[in-house]
Simulated assay, not measured.
Amino acid sequence: MRISARTQYALCAMVALATAEGPVHAEWVALTQDIPRRFCDNILLQLRRAGLVRSQRGPDGGYWLARPAKEISLADVIHVTEGVEQGSEHFPAAAAPLADVWAQLRSHEHALLSEITLAHIVDAPTGLTTSGS
């Protein structure tokens, strides 16, 4: 799986929002996560449109998670920025069974990313283990 810089920034922004106590400005997210400011604004807008983030304008406004961190998985964020991968691999002749391997890989990948929430990331002291580890 390849993860774009946009997705990496989106995940960092979401973790930052999960650690914040109340609304925070986009500038704070950009500075604390080393995200270029304009890029951060665009990502937060995309996440807001997808319903993962809420926002309010004004000096007391900012951005915050639309749901508790324990209800937002990494897969939720990745689907917003990367979209859903379609299984379109075609392998000729003797290699045809590889299509099933790739499908299983995508399924396991999705299951893992769906299992890990922002709360897991925020609460992880140094490493992250899942129920399968």
Rank of each mutant, 00 (worst) to 15 (best):
Q86G: 09
E85F: 11
E85Q: 13
R54L: 12
A96M: 09
G61Y: 08
G58E: 06
C40V: 05
H108R: 10
N42D: 15
L112T: 02
P59C: 00
H90S: 11
L47H: 04
Q104I: 00
T81G: 04
L118P: 07
L112E: 05
E71P: 01
F91A: 12
D60G: 05
H110A: 14
E82Y: 12
W64I: 02
G83M: 07
N42E: 15
G83S: 11
W64C: 03
W64H: 04
W102Y: 10
D41P: 00
D60K: 14
Y63P: 02
W102Q: 09
I121L: 15
L44T: 04
E109P: 00
G61Q: 07
R67G: 00
V80D: 01
L74S: 01
E71H: 11
I121V: 15
S107Q: 13
R37Y: 15
C40P: 07
R54Q: 13
R57W: 04
P92D: 12
A69V: 03
V84A: 09
G87F: 07
V101D: 07
L74T: 05
E85G: 06
A75D: 11
V84D: 08
R38D: 13
L118A: 03
A50L: 10
D76L: 02
V80P: 01
L112N: 01
E115W: 01
S55F: 13
F91V: 09
V84F: 08
S88T: 15
R57K: 13
L113T: 05
K70W: 01
E109H: 12
V77Y: 05
E115R: 06
G61N: 05
S114Y: 02
K70E: 14
A103F: 04
L113K: 06
E82S: 10
S55P: 01
R49S: 10
V77G: 03
I121Q: 04
E71V: 00
I116Y: 00
W102K: 08
R38I: 09
A94D: 13
E82W: 12
R37I: 15
K70G: 05
K70L: 01
R54I: 12
A95K: 10
Q86F: 09
I72M: 03
A103K: 14
L45D: 13
H90A: 11
A103N: 09
A119Y: 02
E85K: 13
A66V: 03
A95S: 11
A93E: 14
H120Q: 06
A93T: 10
D41V: 11
I78W: 04
E89A: 15
T81N: 08
S73A: 11
E82Q: 15
I43T: 14
R37M: 12
E115N: 07
T117M: 02
P59S: 11
F39I: 11
Y63H: 14
A111N: 06
G51L: 09
I78C: 04
L105G: 03
I78V: 15
L44F: 12
H79Q: 14
G61E: 06
A119K: 08
A119E: 13
F39W: 04
A103Q: 13
V77W: 03
D60Y: 10
A96Y: 05
F91R: 09
